[in-house]
Design a protein around this nucleic acid. Structure first.
Lengths: 139, 139
DNA sequence: TGTTATATGAGAATGATTCTGTTTTAAGAA
DNA sequence: TTCTTAAAACAGAATCATTCTCATATAACA
């Protein structure tokens, strides 16, 4: 994901193009495994030493607001950020703090069909996400 | 859930019986809808004005550790506590911060069977929880 | 009833995130 | 290109939930 592509995405969402927004968005793409705000700040500071913490949080919020990123909450309560690619669930490792995306269209379809039949009383579903906990096998 | 029952549960888990533990556990049962630590503290202080914040957190941790409570993380990052009754999922209201339990054995069975066949590469599942987001209908 | 490991209390410390007030800048208008 | 202005960024203070520290108190068992 190069700067031109990022700028294009920001424009599509009607966001003003600022070096900080480009840098934050690029950092989230560059850092794999759902970086925390802190990861992102450290990464950006390498090339952009004077960016301020508040700005990074505000940029992240605006990117989430524009559906360019998703905010993922972790077990210990800190937020992580995730580029929006497609619907996916998360695999949480019990031993490390690794989180992996898990896409499974067949599963999504099965669950969707299940809830077409079986309604939850007084509740209108907009989204279902699975938190799959377990352990990554050492390979 | 009266004190005697709570004491019994604590004993079963080999926890020392203290008034603070009893009060915290009782508060979680008494306060419906997955109280926060802060909700619990306020509730306890009515009858137990000198309990300290750190103690409540430590008691909550030990109850979670002993599987008497579960810790649930919310969208905004604060933790909520939930008496362990049986396997259940959560309904999150998009508009309010209401969280409801959702039990569905049929759904659990369907998902379990699904993952008996379809393995996730390099990952051993220990638990699957659904976060069902949506809106409670006004009745 | 005494002993001791464990729990509690008070408040300081931490860490993530948000807020405040001021300065800067992107982007459209002239 | 230059001007204008709303929006964005900056620095750092403030906030909020949670954890830590360490001195004191107490549950549980001998």
């Amino acid at each position: 994901m190069n700067s031109a592509e990022i700028i294009e995405k920001l424009k599509q969402k009607g966001l003003r193009i600022t070096p900080q927004r480009v840098a934050v968005f690029q950092a989230v793409y560059h850092l794999k495994n759902h970086p925390t705000a802190d990861n992102i700040i450290s990464n950006i500071k390498i090339n952009h030493p004077y960016i301020s913490v508040g700005t990074v949080y505000k940029v992240l919020d605006s990117l989430v607001e524009s559906s360019l990123l998703k905010k993922v909450k972790t077990e210990n309560g800190t937020m992580r950020y995730d580029p929006v690619l497609s619907k996916h669930h998360h695999l949480y490792c019990e031993e490390t703090d690794r989180i992996e995306d898990y896409e499974d269209l067949e599963l999504d379809k099965m669950i969707e069909e299940y809830f077409m039949d079986k309604k939850i009383e007084n509740f209108k579903i907009t989204d279902i996400k699975l938190q799959i906990t377990g352990k990554f096998k050492t390979q």
